Amino acid sequence: MRCFYHPEYVFPLPPEHPFPMDKFWRAEAMLREANHPAITIHSHAPASIEQLHRVHTPTYLASIRAGALVKADAVRLGLPASEALLHRSALEVGGTLAATQAALEDGLACNLAGGTHHAFADRGLGYCVLNDVAVAIRELHTTRPKLRIFVVDTDAHQGNGTHGIFAAEDRVFTYSIHVGKNYPAAKTPGDLDVPLPRYVEGADYLEQLESTLSPALDDFAPDFVFWIGGADLHIDDRFGQMRLTDEHFAARDHHILDLVTTRRVPTVVLYGGGYNRDRIKTARLHADTVLRAADHAQK
């Protein structure tokens, strides 16, 4: 299983910043140490400006490059806008583009980042500058216009940006299972939202996931899947407001991977969010999901 990573995924932020950029290099190091026989890790190029423009407005991209966001937009984004941030974010999108091509060829692939689902076409929110999944979908549709694409979003927060970008697109199905009364406060409806109560127990979460995702996949019959995993469902996450243990994470991952591999649907695995009280644990959760995907790739 090909995984894509670039050292510049790690963007310099103050130590007290709530977004743990160190999770990227930590998880990559864990995967190298695991030495899984099915995993190879590759570098990649950034997304081109032409590819970004298929989703994001020129005005928005220019404001990020120039560091010229108005104060309210800068606060909503939560990251310091600059040309360096735009380059870093274009690299993250490039990782998802590379993983998309690898999944078409191999069945399963991973970007060791990505899942930046709060970014809309004209604004970034919640540490999401560019919507990597949306750019990858638009890129796929340039050469495969009839491809039916399913976005499985199991991050603890609703994928509002992805929902908004594809609200009128019948070739794309957006599924999000998340805490209902959590960020973002204003939800953007997707094709299937599964809102859960705050501090939902892991068993209840799994029951809802298993009863809703499989029928939606069967009804839509996708040709390609993007899965935004999310590490913020963990009981010790600062912002997720869910109560999943490591065992629940394993059950979630195996259920989703079973669904896509038994259907033989090419799938890209992406990180999504994660803000565990133990920063190393955030990386461990992401890495474990990738290792489980690699196990399925071997079957």
Rank of each mutant, 00 (worst) to 15 (best):
V179N: 02
G180W: 00
K181A: 14
N182A: 08
P184F: 05
P184C: 06
A185F: 13
A185Q: 12
A185P: 07
A185M: 10
A186G: 12
K187E: 11
T188A: 11
T188I: 14
T188D: 10
T188E: 15
P189I: 07
P189K: 05
G190M: 03
G190T: 00
L192S: 01
D193A: 04
D193W: 00
V194S: 10
P195I: 05
P195T: 05
L196G: 06
L196Y: 00
R198S: 10
Y199N: 14
V200D: 03
V200W: 06
E201N: 06
E201W: 01
E201H: 02
E201P: 02
G202A: 02
G202F: 04
G202C: 09
A203V: 15
A203D: 15
A203S: 15
D204G: 09
D204M: 09
D204H: 13
D204K: 06
L206H: 04
L206M: 11
E207F: 06
E207P: 00
L209Y: 05
E210K: 15
T212Y: 07
L213R: 07
P215T: 02
P215A: 01
P215M: 00
P215H: 02
L217H: 04
L217V: 09
D218K: 14
D219I: 11
D219S: 15
P222K: 01
P222N: 02
P222Y: 03
D223R: 00
D223T: 01
D223P: 08
F224L: 04
F226T: 01
W227R: 01
I228R: 04
I228P: 06
G229T: 04
G230C: 07
L233Y: 02
L233V: 10
L233P: 06
H234Q: 04
I235D: 09
D236E: 09
D236T: 12
D236G: 00
D237Q: 09
R238I: 08
R238E: 13
F239L: 14
G240Q: 08
Q241K: 14
Q241C: 11
R243P: 08
R243K: 06
R243G: 01
R243Q: 13
D246L: 08
E247C: 10
H248D: 15
H248M: 02
F249T: 04
F249P: 08
A250Y: 05
A251P: 05
R252C: 08
D253Y: 01
D253L: 00
D253V: 01
H254P: 01
H254V: 09
H255T: 10
I256T: 11
L257P: 01
D258S: 14
D258C: 02
L259S: 04
V265K: 00
V265W: 03
P266G: 00
P266A: 08
P266M: 02
T267M: 10
T267E: 12
T267R: 04
V268D: 03
V269Q: 10
V269S: 10
L270G: 00
Y271Q: 10
G272S: 06
G273V: 09
G274R: 05
G274A: 10
Y275R: 00
Y275M: 06
N276A: 15
N276V: 07
R277T: 15
D278A: 09
D278C: 12
D278T: 11
R279P: 14
R279I: 13
R279K: 14
I280Y: 09
A283S: 07
